[in-house]
Design a protein around this nucleic acid. Structure first.
Length: 830
RNA sequence: GCCUCGGUGGCGGAAUUGGUAUACGCGUUAGACUUAAAAUCUGAUGGUCUUACGACCUUGUGGGUUCGAGUCCCACCCGAGGCACCA
């Protein structure tokens, strides 16, 4: 007996008992569980995905509830339309917070993580999110990270995972390498310590191999424009020319060395008055002469991190005394070293055009370098002069008077410049540095022979398990160095003198392929079953916060394209449609944070008002994608709405319909209109207006019922309970089961029922109120029966007969316009 | 500086994409019920002027297109997020 206390129903909305009862029932009946096992040919699947979450010790946040509920509504709505819905959940369980906690308290990250996941799972179930728990995954589980390691080895075998040397960002406090994106204004994003540069041997993924496809693929997806723009900006494709400048000796004779610069404005080459090298440029220290002062400057500048120069916007620099030869004019140009030149972009050197570039202009003025104008009609120090339309000044033989476009074409066509000036494309995107000197992550499946050469861990040794006997305390070395078991394992399997790779992988790797694993979460033989992949992927709808979008999406797209090229996947882009939820702000309108004391705890709201209220309130707050402040009294308003809904629907059960009620058709019309509205607003993600429509419907019903007892036909009572099911699944289940009179075990959930359809005839309005506009102002309104709305002559005659209209139009001959069913417009002008 | 969103009552927000601006909710206020309060229910609620009928104003600002503009066009102001000495 699933429903034992029907009789106890009263007018009181007892959210706690309702929600406990149905959570238990759904769980016992395994509603919507293990869906991937039901994959069959010809299925119409909808794959809904929520951003992989880190199971933090803080537990569920109201922000999580918002996006999870939005997806849950889509899941329930689509299931009721007969679609098979795949709606899995998992945990991005490796990561720094658990490790930092371990350093502080000694509690093993595995334990912290396990507890946090338990908390999240309990809270999510309480909110009624209809996840498929049978497909649950956690990146820290060997059954998962075995395949993360497999992915690494696939990349390694194709040469896309390689070891490289280079300057890396090092956080002295966290004792780890940081990716560029983890450096914010020159400081560690986590602890805000100033980041320094350090040279280390690291593993990289060659994402740059896919740079062009990562740009073009954006045309295939339905994503917010801003997200696409951010991706493009990160990849930073820029077309221009590389120019080789020959270094000359004191007599002006080339000495065999050269400097390359990159420019997007080749036409300004005639205005070059200096060349500037980055302090990290290879030639710094090599070119002669380099005076003592310059030596000193360079060493200071190298010590001073580049990021500091960036922040201060400084324009320091020094003349090296060296000169290069202008490839076109033959003029000798001084070479400077300048801190505003970025070592890692382009060639690490720029041609200085102070006549046409604001930044170069600033530098030239400070250091009194000649400023020369090459193009007419532009502001002296502006960089916005170009649109390909500038005209070169007449000072340049063969080029004077040409437009920028013509000059560039001419240079490109001139054989003399072949190999000196070359059309080229630059990208900001760098290869992905994936090594982390951290414990709580996926071990890199590499071992080193006694000579120090890397070898891949044999596939039969996967999962290459993370040792547990480590010292978390930061020493500047990877914690795995301290594991005895790890060393013993490698020597036993690979031979004496062999050692493991001590670094772990960036957790972005774990979280950038997880959506491929859900369908085969327990498969120990392959990373994903091809049949599952074919049926479920790509992801139809992805809901993800706006904060992590650039890298996670770029990496996910890279993996997808790589695995496609290996023949594992048949699609190019992993996420067909994506939207971002807004942030829920504290009641003070500020971002919620513990220090501000404005955090709303979902458990407290559920305790007091119930999960249904929490869900409906968060959906009612406003558009899903915008930021919204929390308003506790509005929560109570939603609670009242659910309570009134219960009262209204309970009053209908077991009663005979009241066709003689004067409002009978009006209320039913409203209900059918509401069915139509809710049905169209849900797929459009307009949850707030769908709920407003349900409120309007209830208001009209209550007004009619107040005047005289009102009872809807049975089917419409059931339809009403179905309409609220996606939003308030617990209350809807309760009312639906009462409405259908479920007894014993013949239980079919409201969430398994078929979504109601609006009756077009019933929902059609019988009368319109048509405004009458005179010169753009509404002066009167007309009541017109629906069957007269198409009759223009009649409507216009009615309008003209209106007393107010006659007063306004007295003595005038207006132009008349009638938009059927919308408006009558009189115009007295012209 | 660049990119992307936004700007509508006291507040959160609606507006079928050019056709009744302010739906729905909150708040406020008057009332009912109550010994009282809470809860619940009912009515009012953009602004100014007016005894009233009503008039005028109102979607960040200023122009424009149109019979008609929150919606389209031009210029600007303000806010949020992202990127940024990227050559």
């Amino acid at each position: 007996m699933i429903y034992s206390n029907l009789e106890m129903q009263t007018k009181i909305y007892d959210h706690t008992s309702i929600e406990e009862r149905w959570q238990k029932t759904w769980e016992e009946r395994k509603l919507f569980q293990n869906m991937a096992a039901t994959v069959a040919p010809g299925d119409d699947w909808l794959y809904l995905l929520f951003a992989f979450a880190y199971p933090s010790g803080q537990g569920l946040h109201v922000g999580h509830v918002e996006s999870k509920t939005a997806l849950d509504i889509l899941a329930r709505f689509n299931r009721m339309h007969g679609k098979k819905v795949f709606f899995p959940v998992g945990w991005d369980a490796f990561g720094l917070p658990a490790e930092n906690y371990a350093i502080k308290t000694g509690v093993h990250p595995a334990e912290t993580t396990r507890n946090a996941i338990h908390t999240f799972r309990r809270q999510i179930k309480r909110v009624g999110i209809s996840y498929d728990w049978e497909a649950e995954i956690a990146t820290s589980h060997p059954g998962y990270y075995k395949w993360t390691q497999w992915l690494f080895l696939e990349l390694y075998k194709k040469g896309l995972a390689y070891q490289g040397d280079g300057m890396v960002n090092w956080c002295p406090s966290c004792q780890t390498v940081l990716a560029n994106e983890q450096v914010v204004n020159g400081a560690c994003e986590r602890c805000e310590t100033e980041v320094i540069q350090k040279k280390m041997k690291q593993w990289f993924f060659k994402i740059t191999d896919y740079k062009d496809e990562l740009i073009s693929g954006l045309d295939q997806v339905d994503w917010p424009e801003a997200t696409k723009q951010q991706q493009l900006h990160w990849i930073g494709k820029s077309e221009g020319h590389e120019v080789v400048w020959e270094v000359v000796d004191g007599a002006g004779i080339p000495n065999g060395k050269s400097i390359k610069t990159f420019t997007t404005r080749l036409d300004t080459i005639f205005g070059v008055t200096f060349i500037a090298l980055s302090v990290k440029h290879d030639l710094v220290g090599e070119i002669r002469p380099l005076g003592k002062e310059a030596q000193k400057y360079v060493s200071e500048a190298v010590i001073q991190s580049e990021s500091e120069a960036k922040r201060s916007g400084s324009k320091n620099g020094i003349d090296t005394g060296t000169k290069v030869k202008h490839p076109i004019t033959g003029e000798l140009i001084p070479v400077w070293i300048a801190d505003f030149v970025i070592g890692s972009y382009g060639t690490g050197a720029v041609m200085g055009v102070p006549g046409h570039d604001g930044r170069d202009n600033e530098f030239a003025k400070i250091h009194t370098i000649k400023i020369e104008r090459a193009i007419e009609g532009n502001q002296e120090n502006s960089s916005d002069l170009y649109e390909g339309k500038g005209v070169l000044t007449t000072d340049f033989p063969n080029f004077g008077g040409l437009t920028s476009e013509q000059a560039i074409e001419k240079i490109e066509a001139e054989p003399t410049y072949s190999g000196v000036i070359t059309k080229t494309t630059q990208y900001k995107l760098r290869d992905w540095l994936i090594s982390r000197q951290r414990y709580w992550g996926t071990p890199i499946p590499i071992v080193y022979d006694p000579e120090g050469n890397p070898h891949q861990v044999k596939e039969e040794h996967l999962p290459w398990t993370l040792p547990t006997d480590v010292d978390f305390k930061p020493t500047g070395e990877s914690p795995l160095t301290s594991s005895k078991e790890f060393h013993a394992r490698v020597e036993k399997l690979y031979g004496k003198g062999w050692r493991p790779e001590y670094d772990t992988m960036d957790t972005f790797i774990d979280s950038s392929w997880y959506y491929l694993r859900y369908g085969s979460a327990r498969d120990e033989t392959q990373f994903a079953d091809p049949e599952q992949l074919k049926a479920l992927l790509p992801v139809d709808f992805y809901m993800i916060g706006p904060e992590h979008i650039v890298l996670h999406l770029l990496y996910s797209r890279f993996f997808t394209k790589f695995l496609r090229d290996q023949g594992y996947l048949k699609f190019d882009e992993p996420f067909t449609k994506m939207r971002h939820q807004g942030m829920i702000m504290g009641p003070d309108g500020k971002k919620m944070s513990k220090s501000k004391g404005n955090v709303i705890n979902p458990d407290e709201i559920i305790e007091k008002f119930g999960a249904d209220t929490l869900r409906v309130y968060e959906m009612f707050m406003g558009p899903i994608e915008s930021d919204k402040p929390w308003d506790i009294s509005a929560v109570a308003g939603v609670y009242r709405f659910l309570q009134r809904t219960q009262t209204a629907l309970l009053s209908q059960v077991g009663e005979a319909a009241t066709p003689d009620h004067p409002e009978f058709l009006a209320v039913r019309r409203k209900l059918h209109q509401t069915i139509a509205k809710v049905s169209s607003h849900i797929p459009a993600l307009k949850f707030n207006t769908a709920i407003a429509a349900l409120m309007e419907c209830l208001n009209l019903f209550e007004r009619a019922n107040r005047a005289e007892k009102f009872v809807l036909p049975d089917g419409e009572v059931r339809a009403w309970t179905q309409l609220i099911a996606p939003f308030a699944p617990f209350l809807a289940e309760e009312l639906y089961q009462i409405a259908v009179g479920t007894t014993g075990d013949e239980f079919i959930s409201v969430h398994q029922s078929v979504w109601p359809e609006a009756d077009a005839e019933l929902s059609a309005e019988t009368a319109f109120e048509i405004p009458i506009q005179i010169d753009g102002k509404v002066r009167a309104r007309l009541q017109i029966a629906a069957d007269q709305a198409e009759d223009e002559a009649f409507v216009v005659a009615q309008a003209q007969a209106n007393a107010v209209v006659r007063r306004w139009l007295a003595g005038k001959k207006p132009a008349i316009r009638y938009i059927p069913g919308k408006i009558v417009s009189f115009s007295t002008q012209a």
